[in-house]
Amino acid sequence: MIYFFIEDTNEKVKIGRAKDIERRRKNLQTGNPRKLLLLGWIRTDDDVRIEQEIHRHFHVRRANGEWFDLEAVDVLPILSHFGVDGFVGTTDDAFQVIGHDRDGIAEYMGVWYWGDLEFEECCPFCGSFCGMHYQEASSMYHCINCDELTSFEFLSPRHEDN
């Protein structure tokens, strides 16, 4: 898998590859005073070639080794390009009410901390760029990657706590 870590100060993005992303993050975190956060990853059997292509794509923004002067949104097109095999690190509470607009309509925490993604683009449960697809027969949304099936009823204003 190809991973994208960002330092919590949003200064640098590490683009690398690992079989176990969480173990790799923990190893990189050792001795690093800045917290490393997972932006996303790409599931692939051709990780060496794809990592090299991504490094070449961002070569003018290389800071040091596999670290690049990028913002989180710079990674988004790369992840979305891989569709069902591109993933974002989803927010813990993707459906938490964070406020209300002028009309009193609830505004929810998005799928991704660093950008405005909707569930039609990216599954809020697994982070896959396959998105959630509406199924007429069940009147529910379905993720083809994680097989999650939901109606998103809890997003309806009638289910909010006032």
Rank of each mutant, 00 (worst) to 15 (best):
F95W: 12
A94V: 13
E66N: 14
R102W: 06
H142C: 01
N27Q: 15
L76R: 03
A63H: 14
D92S: 11
T91K: 15
L38E: 13
G127M: 01
G65F: 02
H57M: 02
C122W: 00
Y108D: 08
M140G: 05
R43K: 14
I2V: 13
D8R: 11
D20N: 15
Q29M: 09
W67H: 00
F68V: 07
T30I: 10
F4C: 06
D147G: 01
G104N: 12
C130F: 01
Y108R: 12
F58Y: 12
L28I: 07
I2M: 10
L38D: 10
V88Y: 03
T150W: 04
G16D: 08
R34F: 14
E53C: 08
H81Y: 13
R24A: 03
G127L: 01
I105D: 13
Q52V: 03
E53F: 09
F82Y: 15
G83Y: 03
N162G: 14
V84W: 06
E66T: 14
A63W: 10
S138W: 11
M140N: 10
T9Y: 02
R17Y: 09
G110F: 03
G104Q: 06
F154P: 05
R25T: 14
P124M: 01
G115D: 07
W41M: 12
A18Y: 03
K19L: 04
D69M: 10
G83H: 02
R62Y: 03
K19N: 08
G104I: 04
M109S: 13
A63V: 06
V84F: 07
V13H: 08
A106P: 14
S128P: 09
P77V: 02
K35P: 07
D103K: 13
T9I: 01
E66D: 15
V75A: 00
D8Y: 09
E53N: 11
L155Q: 10
W41S: 15
F125Q: 11
R49H: 08
W114T: 06
Y134N: 01
D161F: 14
F5A: 00
W112C: 00
Q29K: 09
F129N: 00
L38C: 11
F58A: 02
G31E: 06
F87M: 03
G99P: 09
R24G: 01
H133F: 01
K14M: 03
K35W: 04
A72G: 02
E136A: 12
L28C: 04
F58D: 06
C123I: 04
G110N: 11
F152N: 07
T44P: 03
E7A: 02
F58P: 09
D69F: 10
C126H: 03
H59P: 05
G86A: 02
G99I: 05
I98G: 05
E160D: 12
L37W: 07
S151W: 08
H100L: 10
P33A: 02
L155C: 02
S138P: 04
I105A: 11
R34A: 10
H59D: 15
I78T: 06
L28S: 10
H133K: 06
F68L: 04
H159D: 12
V60K: 09
I2N: 13
D93M: 03
Y3M: 08
I98Q: 11
I50L: 09
E53K: 09
R25E: 15
F68M: 04
Q52T: 09
